[in-house]
Design a binder for these strands. Sequence first.
RNA 1: CUGGGUGUGGCGCAGUUUGGUAGCGUGCUUGAAUGGGGUUCAAGAGGCCGGAGGUUCAAGUCCUCUCACCCAGACCA
Length: 479
Amino acid sequence: MKKDDKLVQEITSREVDFAKWYTDIVRKAELIDYSSVRGCCVLRPYGYAIWENIQKILDAKFKELGHENVMMPLFIPESLLQKEKDHVEGFAPEVAWVTMGGSEQLAERLCVRPTSETLFCEHYANIIHSYRDLPKLYNQWCSVVRWEKSTRPFLRTAEFLWQEGHTMHATAEEAIEETERMLGVYADFAQEQLAMPVVCGRKTDKEKFAGAEATYTIEAMMHDGKALQSGTSHYFGDGFAKAFDITFTDRDNQLKHPHQTSWGMSTRIIGGIIMTHGDDNGLVLPPAVAPIQIVIVPIAFHKGGVLETAQQLCQTLQQAGFRVKLDDSDATPGWKFAEYEMKGVPLRVEIGPRDIEAGVCVAVSRDNREKTEVPIAELAQRVPELLEAYRRRLYEKALQNREARTTAARTMEEVKAQSAAGNGFIKTMWCGELACEEAMKEQAGLTSRCMPFEQETLSDVCPVCGKPAKTMVIWGKAY
RNA sequence: CUGGGUGUGGCGCAGUUUGGUAGCGUGCUUGAAUGGGGUUCAAGAGGCCGGAGGUUCAAGUCCUCUCACCCAGACCA
C-alpha cells in the first residue's frame, strides 16, 4: 500500500500486524473498552448500536417465522446441567460457578449459563403435553458466560451477548427443517445485510456442539484468511428430550419425545464484520447495521448559509429513513473525514460555500473514497443506489479475497504446502475418520471448518489414509 | 494452562542498564485566526510511575511476591 493511501496514522497497518490492527480498530473506533473483570468488555455506545441494529433485523425475521421471545434464568443448578452427559462434558471446563448466597454457602452450586438448552428443556417438560402444544418456537436475547482461557474483544469474551433459539417439534423431519431454515436465515443475513460471503455446511463430529446430533454452520473468511464460525444451528434429535423426560401425546394417542433444535448468533459477528471489511483507515460498516449511515460534514460553515443548508439536508435524509449525523463541531474538515472513516460510516456528504452556489453536494463512499457530485435536491433519492452499490462492492471484495485464498488438495504434501503458503480454506476429500481429522491438525495445523452443502469430487480417496472418501471438507485455521 | 511482552497525566510512549528535582508527543481547557484530507499560534490545567512488601540517606529505576492486560500456542462454541 502506498504511504499516501493511509491517512490514519494511529492504526497499525493490516499487513504489518493483523492482530494489532484489529485491537486498534475496536478501541479507536470506540466500540469497546476493557473492564476490570478479566475477559469482559464494555460495549460502548457505537459498538452497542451495531448490535442493536443486528438485533432489530434478526428479531424481526425470527418473529416473521413464528418465534416468540422469552427470558430464561441466569443460573443453572448443577444437577440440571448434568442431565445430559455429552452436554455437561462439553461445557463443564468453562463454566463459572456461584457457591455463595450472601454469606451462606448454597446447598447446590449454580452455574452461570454458558448456553440455555437445559433451562429450556426443564421448562418445556412442564408445558408440553400434547401434539397441540407443538411446535414450540422460543428465542431469547441475553448474555452468557464462558470462562475462556484467552479472550479477544468480540471474538471470544468471557461474557457475550447473543440470541439463542430453542425449538421443539413433533417430528424429526420438522425439526431438521427448522435447523436448516434458521441456518438459511443466518446465511442470508450475513450475505445480504452484512455483505459477508459464507460457506454453509455441516460440522464434523469432532467440531459439533456438545449434545447435538448434527451441527450446521456458516463459515466466513476474514481478510487474513482465517475462518470465523459466524452462526450455528443444531439438530438435537430427541436426546435432550429423553434426558429431561419431555413427552407429548401424539395424534395416534402414543406418548412420544419431541425433536429439538437450537441456533445462535453472537456479538462475535461484529468481530467478523470488522475483519472482513475493515481497512487501514479503520472500520468499514455495511449500511444495514451502521449506526450512522451518512455523515454530513459542512465546510467553512461559519460562512453564510452553509450550516442552514446542511441542517435542512440532514432533516431531509432523516425523513427519508436514513441514520444521519451532521457534525457541526468545530473540528477541521480533515479531522472529521478521518474520524468518520475510522468509524466506518458508509457515506460522507461534504457541503461548502462552493457547492451551495452550484446547488450540489459531494457524496464520498467509505470503501473507495470515490466522490460523486449530487444536486442537493436529489440526494435523498440517490442515496439508496449509492449505498447498494457500496454494499455490493464490499461483498465482491470479500468474495474475491475468499476465492483467492481457497485451494484444493489431493495429497498430504499438497495440504502441507498450501497450509504453509498462507492462511485460507483448503478443500480435500475425507474418509470420515477422527484419526485423519486429528492428523490434519498435527501435520498441517488445520481444523475442519465444515462439510459444505455444495460438494465437489476432488478425488476418491482421503489424503491422509488413502482410504475411499466421498465427503469434501473445508479446512482452515479458525478464530 | 505454557511461552513471550507490557503496566509511568485521558491516550501513546521515553526514562529503569549506571538509584539523586517525573519528561515528550497527542488529547483536554481558554482565546484568536483558519476551514474541500487529522490547520496554526499563544496561554493554561492535569501524575501516590498497576498493587504489596523489602534494600537504601534516597526507589519509576534494585530485590521478593502479587494483579491485570496484550501476543503466540494449547484448550474450546
